[in-house]
Design a protein around this nucleic acid. Sequence first.
DNA 1: GATAGAAGCTTTAAGCTTCAAATAAATTCA
DNA 2: TGAATTTATTTGAAGCTTAAAGCTTCTATC
Lengths: 178, 178
Amino acid sequence: MSVEPADPLPAETHHLDSESRADGGHADHKAELRLWLRLLTCTTMIETEIRRRMRDRFDITLPRFDLMAQLERVPEGMTLGELSRRMMVSNGNVTGLVDRLVAEGLLQRRQSDTDRRAHYVSLTDAGHRAFVAMAAEHEDWVADLFADLGPGEVEKLMALLGAAKRSVGRSIQNAVET
Amino acid sequence: MSVEPADPLPAETHHLDSESRADGGHADHKAELRLWLRLLTCTTMIETEIRRRMRDRFDITLPRFDLMAQLERVPEGMTLGELSRRMMVSNGNVTGLVDRLVAEGLLQRRQSDTDRRAHYVSLTDAGHRAFVAMAAEHEDWVADLFADLGPGEVEKLMALLGAAKRSVGRSIQNAVET
DNA sequence: GATAGAAGCTTTAAGCTTCAAATAAATTCA
DNA sequence: TGAATTTATTTGAAGCTTAAAGCTTCTATC
């Protein structure tokens, strides 16, 4: 979790001189770097606060809550692999999380009828009830964290982050193909 | 690491009906929730990709790189506590990271002359050289990830994330004071 | 100076996370 | 069919992370 400088450096703002360089070095991309650090700072701050509240209020970890959130959307359940892709974490990670949540009685797992490699997981009734209660508060926490943003700012941020997400997706795809 | 739905739900876009509710339930804040999930998705995608490249290219972990980045900014070094605050991670975390980096010869630690509780850490010459080499490529990676954004979009995102960061900071502060 | 509280750091336990290797089952295709 | 490949999951090792407890040292106050 690296972060922005507490006091942002003397703003050599937006100084993309990629064409004006005589040396053989790489172009200057400080603006993008600062953007990444700020993005990371925002995410870390929010994540840390939500983790704290989840622990204090519900005695649950964030990864477990996140996993339950994925399952809540698909009541019939999904395979571990699908969970792994949606949560963007490794397979082994999901295996462990599911094990613990099953042990707590919040999840159930069953083997697929058609593919004996695959295991479906879904929320138990207790898991569903627990999640609904937590999700309502969670939504309020998030709303409060962003409370100083106007509706227009929220929409604008969504749009710009959407553009950023597409750019990142494209860049990663290019890297994989290479 | 929870994420947005792969296919965002049928856009009940921006439907803040906090005043139009008759029931005693809490207001609907789906827009803010979606914003948080998108923010998290962007960060996770970027972080995962950079982590992968750091490992492939330099055989180093992201936390170690981040710690070195903090020290690079302050050549005379800083205490573990200051590192912990800047990186927004726990004290114990920093202790472990520093131990490993010292063992690799990239960091040096020395006791403070004036405060025998405090330990200063700084990059060794080898650490500095290694960091400079990694940082140049890192900057290029980040630039490429955001390459589809125009300069105006980068600036606008910076500004909006700045506003978001202030909002989050205010909200957390309120929560602590309570 | 003594004492109390705060501050800096380490340690421990528990849990999260990744990567790589292994297992098993399904699929492709020669 | 049968071999090779792909897919789904698990396992194990290493490392990251937090929270909580504890140790040492500093500082403020009497």
